[in-house]
Simulated scan of single mutants.
Amino acid sequence: MNATPAERVAETLRDDFAAHGVRLPDVRADLSDPRQPQLELGTIPLGTGFALLRVLTDYQRLLKAERVGLNRRG
């Protein structure tokens, strides 16, 4: 079975943080509404929370830039 985009993002986040020695104990994709998948995070240490906000902001910027690029090509 193929992973959904939300599941791939959750896996990527875990892998990115693990590469930097930070363990995210509980990151999963909530697919109850297929049109609006959500990432769910369990309890994380404060320092990890700040790092997570930074990474998520970077991902948000990348997604926005990607969408703009797709709209220009389309």
Rank of each mutant, 00 (worst) to 15 (best):
M1R: 15
M1H: 15
N2P: 14
N2Q: 14
A3D: 10
A3W: 11
T4S: 13
P5C: 07
A6D: 07
A6E: 12
A6F: 08
E7S: 11
E7T: 11
E7C: 11
R8W: 04
R8L: 12
R8T: 12
V9T: 12
A10Q: 10
E11L: 06
E11D: 11
E11C: 00
E11F: 00
T12F: 11
T12E: 05
L13N: 13
L13K: 08
R14W: 05
R14T: 12
R14A: 12
D15F: 02
D15L: 04
D16Y: 01
D16K: 04
D16L: 13
F17V: 07
A18D: 07
A18I: 08
A19M: 04
H20S: 03
G21V: 09
V22A: 11
R23F: 09
R23C: 03
P25D: 14
P25Y: 08
P25E: 14
D26V: 02
V27Y: 00
V27R: 08
V27Q: 01
V27H: 09
V27S: 11
R28C: 04
R28I: 01
R28S: 05
A29W: 02
A29K: 02
D30H: 03
L31W: 01
L31K: 00
S32F: 00
S32Y: 00
S32P: 01
S32D: 04
D33Y: 01
D33I: 10
P34Y: 02
P34W: 03
R35H: 09
R35F: 01
Q36G: 00
P37R: 00
Q38P: 01
Q38K: 09
L39V: 08
E40S: 07
L41W: 15
L41T: 12
L41E: 14
L41N: 10
L41R: 08
T43F: 07
I44C: 12
I44H: 15
I44V: 15
P45F: 13
P45I: 04
L46E: 02
L46G: 02
G47T: 13
G47N: 13
G47L: 14
G47S: 13
G49Y: 04
F50N: 11
F50D: 13
F50E: 08
A51G: 10
A51C: 07
A51H: 10
L52N: 06
L53S: 10
R54A: 10
R54P: 00
L56P: 10
D58I: 09
D58Y: 03
Y59Q: 10
Y59G: 03
Y59D: 06
Y59L: 11
Y59V: 08
R61W: 09
R61S: 12
L62D: 02
L62W: 02
L63D: 06
L63P: 02
L63M: 04
K64R: 06
K64G: 05
A65G: 07
E66R: 04
E66L: 09
E66I: 02
R67W: 05
V68K: 09
V68M: 13
V68W: 07
G69A: 15
G69Q: 01
N71H: 09
R72I: 13
R72E: 15
R73A: 15
R73G: 07
G74S: 08
G74H: 00
